[in-house]
């Protein structure tokens, strides 16, 4: 299967990456090799097997509905690239 530049551009868009022309070429080439390598898994017969999303077989891990104190806003927002002290600032989002 061929990985085209268009595929890379679509994927980059989905994952919010801006790639230069060179990068698109480079990743298309890398991906071509990696996907060819990844296709090895199709040589393995997995008929009748369930998927494992987890390394362990536990389930029903719940938390009680008990309020914990929220974080200090200043501490939580100390890393914000842009804020007015109470909320994060972004350019206008027009829908």
């Amino acid at each position: 299967m061929e990985i085209t530049k268009k595929d890379i551009e679509h994927i980059a868009n989905l994952s919010m990456l801006n790639l230069s022309e060179d990068e698109v070429d480079g990743y298309a080439k890398d991906m071509q090799e990696i996907i060819a390598f990844a296709n090895q898994i199709n040589e393995i017969n997995t008929d009748g097997l369930e998927e494992s999303a987890f390394a362990l077989d536990s389930y029903n891990v719940f938390r009680k509905d008990e309020v914990r104190e929220s974080f200090d806003r200043e501490l939580l927002m100390q890393n914000a690239p842009s804020s007015n002290g109470v909320a994060y600032q972004i350019p206008p989002v027009i829908e």
Binding site: I3, A12, M31, T46, L49
Partner: peptide
């Protein structure tokens, strides 16, 4: 890795890669 990861989860490829890999994991 973001590109590869996005690719294997994207529409049309999920079953062939991600789902298959989860089955190999079981094996």
């Amino acid at each position: 890795r973001i590109i590869l990861g996005t690719y294997v989860l994207s529409a049309g490829y999920y079953d062939a890669y991600y789902k298959k890999a989860q089955k190999v994991r079981t094996l």
